[in-house]
C-alpha cells in the first residue's frame, strides 16, 4: 500500500508537471502551415528577467524609424511624450520632468505637423505637433496608404514586436533577410521574396513540390541598407546595427513598461518567496502534533 501510494503520488505529480509544461509549449505548437524560416539567432539587451533596454540603442532605433520606416508605416499608439517617459529613448534621469514637458519630446514633436481643425474657420489645418500628440501618420487613412503602396497596407508598427511570432528577432531577420528568389519561383509584380516572411508559395513554384522554398512574398522592398541612417553617436551604419536598433526600438514601443514590469516582478517574486517560506514554517508548526 505504501508503495502503491507513493507511485500514485509520483504519477499525480507527473501529471501536474505535464499539465504545467504543456501550458508553456502550446502557443509554440500553434504554428500555421506556412514554411517561413525560423528567425536568426540574435541577442538583445532586454532579454531575460534582468534585461534592460540600451537607451543609446533606443535613440538610434528611433532615428531609423523616423528616417526610414515612418515614410510608410504609422505608429498610432505611440505619442511623442512617450519618448521622454521613464524607460524611453529620451528620458533624462538627471532632469526628470513630466514626459509632456520634456524639452526632448517638445523638440521632436515640433518637427512634425499634424492635422487639426481651425477653431475659427472650421477648416482642416496642419499645426505643429505637441508632445501629447500621437506619432504623425504618413497617410491620412488606410485607403490612402494602400493607394500609395500598390494596394498593400503598411501595417501600423506600434505593437509589431508583439504581433509576430519571434518578436524583435523576427523583425531583425525580415529586414536583413531579403535575397534573390530561387530559380523556379515566379515573384508577382510589386512583391519581393523574403525567406522569413510567412506565406504559402506553392502556386508560384514551378520546381519539384518537395522543394518549395522557405518564406513568402512581401510588398515592402529591402529598406535597410548600409549608411542609410547616420547615427549621432558614431555607431557604424552597418545593416546589422540599423536593423538591430530598429528592432530594439519596436520592442520598446510594443512594450513600453517592460523594464518596469520585470523590476516589479523581481520584487514580487522575492516577497512571495519569503512569504511562502514563512507560511510553510507556520504550517509545519501548526500541524506538528497532528498525525495525518
Amino acid at each position: 500500500m505504501q508503495f502503491g501510494q507513493s507511485i500514485q503520488t509520483k504519477l499525480s505529480g507527473l501529471i501536474a508537471a505535464i499539465a504545467v509544461g504543456s501550458l508553456a509549449l502550446l502557443p509554440v505548437a500553434a504554428h500555421a502551415k506556412t514554411n517561413e524560416k525560423e528567425p536568426m539567432e540574435v541577442h538583445f539587451s532586454f532579454e531575460g528577467p534582468f534585461g534592460r533596454f540600451d537607451q543609446a540603442e533606443l535613440q538610434r532605433g528611433y532615428k531609423v524609424y523616423a528616417e526610414v520606416c515612418s515614410a510608410c508605416h504609422s505608429m498610432n499608439l505611440v505619442s511623442y511624450r512617450d519618448l521622454a517617459a521613464p524607460g524611453g529613448p529620451f528620458y533624462d534621469p538627471k532632469h526628470p520632468v513630466a514626459p509632456a514637458q520634456s524639452p526632448y519630446a517638445k523638440a521632436i514633436a515640433e518637427q512634425y505637423k499634424v492635422p487639426d481643425i481651425d477653431p475659427d474657420t472650421g477648416d482642416t489645418i496642419q499645426r505643429t505637433a505637441t508632445p501629447a500628440d500621437h506619432f504623425k501618420a504618413p497617410f491620412a487613412n488606410d485607403a490612402a496608404a494602400r493607394a500609395a503602396n500598390g494596394g498593400a497596407l503598411p501595417p501600423d508598427l506600434s505593437v509589431m514586436a508583439r504581433a509576430r511570432e519571434g518578436g524583435p528577432a523576427y523583425i531583425y531577420s525580415l529586414l536583413l533577410g531579403y535575397e534573390e528568389p530561387p530559380k523556379g519561383l515566379t515573384v508577382p509584380a510589386g512583391k519581393y521574396y523574403n525567406p522569413y516572411m510567412a506565406g504559402d508559395m506553392g502556386s508560384y513554384w514551378t520546381g519539384a513540390k518537395t522543394q518549395i522554398p522557405e518564406g513568402g512574398f512581401i510588398a515592402m522592398g529591402k529598406q535597410i541598407t548600409a549608411s542609410r541612417v547616420q547615427f549621432d553617436d558614431k555607431t557604424p551604419s552597418t545593416v546589422e546595427n540599423e536593423a538591430h536598433a530598429v528592432a530594439t526600438f519596436l520592442a520598446w514601443t510594443a512594450d513600453e513598461h517592460q523594464v518596469e514590469r520585470k523590476q516589479t516582478g523581481l520584487a514580487v517574486m522575492l516577497y512571495l518567496f519569503v512569504f511562502t517560506l514563512i507560511t510553510y514554517l507556520s504550517y509545519r508548526r501548526i500541524w506538528r502534533n497532528v498525525a495525518h
Binding site: S79, R81, D82, A85, A98, P99, A100, Q101, P131, A132
Partner: peptide, 8 residues
Amino acid sequence: GDTLALAS
C-alpha cells in the same frame, strides 16, 4: 499618462 499630457 495621456490625461496628464494635456495638463498644460
